[in-house]
Design a protein around this nucleic acid. Sequence first.
DNA 1: TTCCTCGGACGTTCAACTAA
DNA 2: TAGTTGAACGTCCGAGGAAT
Length: 351
Amino acid sequence: MSNDQAKNSAPVQEHTYPAIAPYQHFNGANSYPPPGPYPIYGYPPPSEGGHVDGTPPNGAHPGAPYMMYPPPAPGVLYYPGPPSGQAFPQFTGTPSTTSSGNRPKRKQVKMACTNCATACKRCDEARPCERCVKYGISETCVDGVRKERKKGVKRGPYKRKNKQNSGDAAYGDPEWQPSGSPNSPPAVPPAMHALPPFPPPEGYWPYMYPPPAFMPPGHEGHPGHEGVPNGNGQPPMLSYYPVPPPGYPPFPHYAHPGTGVYSPHHPNGAPVQPPAEAASHADSQSVDTDSQGRTEESPPAPSNQRKRTRTSKNGEPKAKKAKTGVGAQGTKAANGAAKGDDQISDDHGGN
DNA sequence: TTCCTCGGACGTTCAACTAA
DNA sequence: TAGTTGAACGTCCGAGGAAT
Ligand SMILES: [Zn+2]
Ligand SMILES: [Zn+2]
């Protein structure tokens, strides 16, 4: 902790997403989809047994990519319809989750008081903070001093993350971006510019329409397909299937970027899970990114599975701090107060 | 059974770096 | 010079050992 905390107390980095217009459901209903992940699938058009309103037909195979019917409005992010004709509940919460699931993102105070910092416990902005008040140590509840950052530390060359697709990123990679091959020029529709803010609320799994650089699978030339009216008064059919934009985790089902052919396998070889399973595992397929878009190569085991060793980073036990004074509070009353929360503790370093 | 410790995940900040 | 990157540094969750 150091004075730079005070220096920088003005701009608070809020990681909440701006309010966005309701996304349109697969079936056209205007409401927020529930926080994901959940399986992505579609239902066949009426010409193939589906219902005009987009609800699934009897015996519909929910894992298959189907044409969307009625045709969607371009330039919006769409979400899959509810399974089995159920309606999604109206989503009213503030989308704020970690990228690794539905767990709410941890909010840190900008500066914990010395007591809380020492105890590695949650603090708040108030002074005295709630915890210090609770333990009757208000008088020692003060901000710590932030260490000054080292200067003059040289770094290597930076990788550019937001570079245009160079063509060597594999499909499914966070860096992959739709672009044309030498044989198929880029097909990024103008409507894409009307997309809602990117990225969308975490936990939301978008469908993008029209799919950039994708051709629809398996319906070429069918009357009434691909935006071409069939001449029978039937509206044009438009393809609709998952396309992970750059930075999005891979979807459970894929259409090959080159051929547009749907495959139950991810282009990089990983098999696709059945929808129900995908729902519970889609999270694990996602590329975990932190608040700065960093990715986690290998997400840590859940903390309840972590092996805990009692040694410090250098392999030695951390020195114990005397249980006197405020940092270690000393009193049982203070120590034990709230279960699952406050236990006054020794200092221990972060990273 | 409760209390306390502390490993490490997670979040924030900002200097170094880079492209325009 | 503005925007991006990435590491330093801070917060604090929660498992598990120690104490009662
Ligand atoms: Zn505090
Ligand atoms: Zn305090």
